[in-house]
Design a protein around this nucleic acid. Structure first.
Lengths: 337, 337
DNA sequence: TGGTCGGCTGGAAGCGCTCCCAGTTTCTGC
DNA sequence: GCAGAAACTGGGAGCGCTTCCAGCCGACCA
């Protein structure tokens, strides 16, 4: 009902006409290409301003065969997995570098098989110029898909069974070793671990780091329970551990989430932390600061992970061949050891 | 070095040729349009399979003038704001309905002015068919942009100063009232509040709910400090409150994040929770379960918020005129009251 | 003064798909 | 067995932009 006409966006032709030049010339000035005289260049700019012209991204994409967007794909079998704050922070990291470019960010939660099919579609239809692929586990079909995708792919984390050409990962193994060594140095001798999903690279690497450290210290490294990276999994794993080895005096837990569950079990069992048993977690989520007691844990640079993935993808897209990157992890000492 | 040719994707023309039909016919069967004989239809399908044809989304977008994607835009002045797990869950909700469609999800963290410009661009270039816009605060320029965007816009939460035609929001005011009433029922009489940012709709609504409840109860409702929705803000606000009104016996805190900060201050000040002072938070983040004591708080259906935003946008895009939606909030009783 | 060179310039051919339209075929009902 | 309707069919014109290319023109050198 307003007087506003539902005016279409002006096209390049209209700009050209108004500026009194050919469409080619107009296109050149829009794209800062050479071979256009100063006078025409300015005429075109003026016309652009007057008309409020904005190039149509779709048409441009069709003509240049470049989508102008990249996708961040989170693969996994649990639809709600993305709710993990971990990913949110990765996204912020990714965004921080994409912001400097003209690229748009698409998000693909390839969680159902339908989701995976769509991601595949997305790539085959060339709606995106590159992919960042996270959290492949086990025999994720996406791994192969990625391998022979026609666009650059960088992995976030390394899948099991397969070393991708381009990836950025956190030093999970090193971090786990650090954590476990910390326990050893604190004088603990009967040290267990609660693992994450062992069909994920991170889960396995943390277990290995744990075993590395105990092997070096000459301690038993077979007290292992799986908690699947979930809080309740951590709780039940802790229960089993207490059954199996009532004399344990420390446990390295492969995620803070699980540590929270374990802490609850420990409290209920009347074990004092860190008096009776020391705990160290992994990830350094914000909650880790507010557990009782505050959790000693391993921090991984999540923001940097996202940032570096994006940088690597950009490099790849511009024809470089970047090397894989492993980001350092760091022990954060609080009060649970 | 493999024998794989870097084969381009086949085009519709190739499909048509192989099937021995016209491009128009091929297009019709791809799009399940009528007016194509059974025989040709099958020939085309076969050709599609043989060739592994996938329609080029960009070309289709250009021809149909539909991008095939929607954007979820998070506006705000803090680049890291998105790291709030709140948004992650919204994304999951949004995704759950988009997954059923052919629409792709683009994410726009319109945090810097550059980010905002890009979002504006995104819309003007029609790279997206619709927008979900979240977390406008104060005089966010995006509000007006959204208002006269040429694509449907649904708001997540209501901005201040402006009631958008289409939005889904949580019942912040009602939730805050619930929380405060709970405090009153528990026999508390000297009740304060720590507010969130008052230039955001949610922050203001929660303050109003607080005041509503106390007005009804005939209690003083002027014990107010601002915590800006941040943890440290909650801490300093609590400190000020303790100064101002050492006799307070309860505080409604507009976010769990801030409540965590406040709890720390309270503990340090030697006040027992809930013995000396009762606390209720807002949001029901996962950490709320692990504070000391576990936090009584108001749960808002974040996943549903995302889901309903997406549904509303879909409705809008298909020409309907959905009504705004206010999702119920719910008191979650734990041990801090 | 003639010849060259190199930077302008605009025409035109796509990019891959949709969809209108006019022409052809095949069915109906009588 | 025939008119008229209904269903198919393929040609062609776009969607808005990029980019190749051939033609120009003025400048510059000998």
């Amino acid at each position: 009902m307003t007087t506003e006409t539902p005016r279409r966006q002006p096209t390049l032709d209209e700009v050209a006409e108004r500026a009194g030049v050919s469409r080619s010339a107009a296109s050149r000035v829009i794209n800062n290409a050479p071979h256009v005289s100063r006078a025409k260049r300015e005429a075109v700019r003026r016309a652009v301003d007057d008309l409020g012209y904005v190039p149509n991204a779709t048409a441009r994409a069709l003509a240049t065969q470049q989508a102008g967007s990249v996708v961040l794909a989170i693969s996994g079998d649990d639809p709600a997995m993305f709710a993990d704050p971990f990913f949110a922070e990765v996204v912020v990291g990714v965004n921080s570098v994409l912001e400097e470019t003209e690229l748009e960010l698409m998000l693909s939660l390839a969680t159902s098989s339908r989701g995976q099919a769509r991601l595949e579609q997305l790539l085959r239809t060339r709606q995106a110029d590159g992919v960042m692929l996270m959290s492949l586990h086990g025999d994720d079909p996406l791994a192969t898909l990625a391998a022979n995708a026609s666009v650059p792919v960088v992995f976030g984390g390394r899948p099991l069974n397969f070393e991708p050409p381009y990836y950025v990962d956190a030093d999970n193994r090193g971090g786990a070793r650090l954590a476990t060594e910390h326990l050893v140095k604190a004088g603990r001798r009967r040290i267990a671990t609660i693992t994450g999903r062992l069909d994920e690279g991170a889960g396995m690497a943390r277990l290995q780091g744990f075993q590395d450290a105990l092997a070096v210290a000459g301690l038993d490294n077979t007290l292992i329970e799986n908690g699947e990276f979930r809080e309740d999994g951590g709780a039940t794993a802790m229960t089993r551990l207490l059954d199996e080895a009532p004399d344990l005096d420390a446990v390295f837990i492969a995620s803070d989430q699980m540590a929270i569950g374990a802490l609850r079990v420990l409290a209920r069992a009347g074990r004092d932390v860190p008096g009776d048993v020391s705990i160290v977690g992994f990830n350094d989520i914000t909650s880790a600061r507010h557990t009782d007691p505050p959790l000693t844990t391993v921090n991984q640079p999540i923001h940097a992970l996202g940032r570096e993935m994006a940088r690597m993808l950009l490099a790849l897209m511009s024809g470089d061949q970047p090397s894989p990157l492993i980001l350092p992890t760091q022990l954060v000492i609080r009060s649970s050891v």
